[in-house]
């Protein structure tokens, strides 16, 4: 008997944010990340028969997504010439030489290690979020990650402000517990 079962009806609720976060930290383009996640789900649907149940659904979907991201970069690289033209070279005489400075690594810029660590932390946050009740997860995401105003969330989810703060309190406590176990 397989260790894991597949249920595409729950994919959007359970994995869309996790996959989106995973993708955007690698492609850095919101629209493209949405397309890749959508393509991943559709490809998952098509190849559902191949799911053996050895790995979890999420791991299986991530493996599809990784291939999609690689394909995306292959496609970009095949258009490399176009990409090079996009580099803005300023040939204004007054600022001659500035372009070189612009291309020197910024010491305050993120290192590859920082980026990797942030991506892992982002994944840990989404793993913890997936363990919360749906409403808590939604409110936490809207308030903490999307930085929505309290009023907007209340209108969107049809809850009162005091309700929102109770939910936020529970979500934050659960998130801190989960992250302490898994990350901090």
């Amino acid at each position: 008997m397989p260790k894991h079962e597949i249920n595409p009806n729950k994919w959007i609720d359970l994995y869309s944010d996790y996959l989106f976060n995973y993708t955007i930290s690698r492609v850095n383009d919101r629209e493209m990340a949405q397309d890749l996640v959508s393509e991943t789900f559709l490809a998952g649907l098509k190849s559902m028969k191949n799911f053996k149940g050895d790995a979890s659904e999420r791991t299986w979907l991530i493996s599809i997504l990784k291939r999609k991201i690689i394909d995306y970069y292959r496609k970009i690289n095949s258009n490399k010439g176009k990409a090079e033209v996009r580099i803005g070279y300023n040939d204004d005489a007054e600022s001659e030489g500035d372009w070189l400075e612009e291309r020197v690594a910024d010491p305050f810029d993120k290192t590859a290690e920082d980026t990797l660590q942030n991506a892992e932390l982002g994944n840990a946050i989404h793993s913890c979020l997936s363990k919360l009740p749906q409403k808590q997860a939604d409110v936490f995401k809207m308030k903490t990650i999307l930085n929505y105003e309290t009023e907007v969330i209340c209108n969107e989810l049809n809850i009162t402000a005091s309700n929102l703060w109770v939910i936020i309190h529970r979500a934050r406590t659960a998130m801190a517990d989960c992250l302490e176990k898994n990350w901090l």
């Binding site: 869309s16 976060n21 942030n118 932390l121 946050i125 989404h126 903490t144 990650i145 934050r172 901090l184």
Partner: peptide, 14 residues
């Protein structure tokens, strides 16, 4: 600490 961690992760969601 939780606020700091979430901010520094640059986590994104739909």
């Amino acid at each position: 600490k939780l606020t700091k961690v979430v901010k520094s992760s640059n986590a994104e969601c739909l």
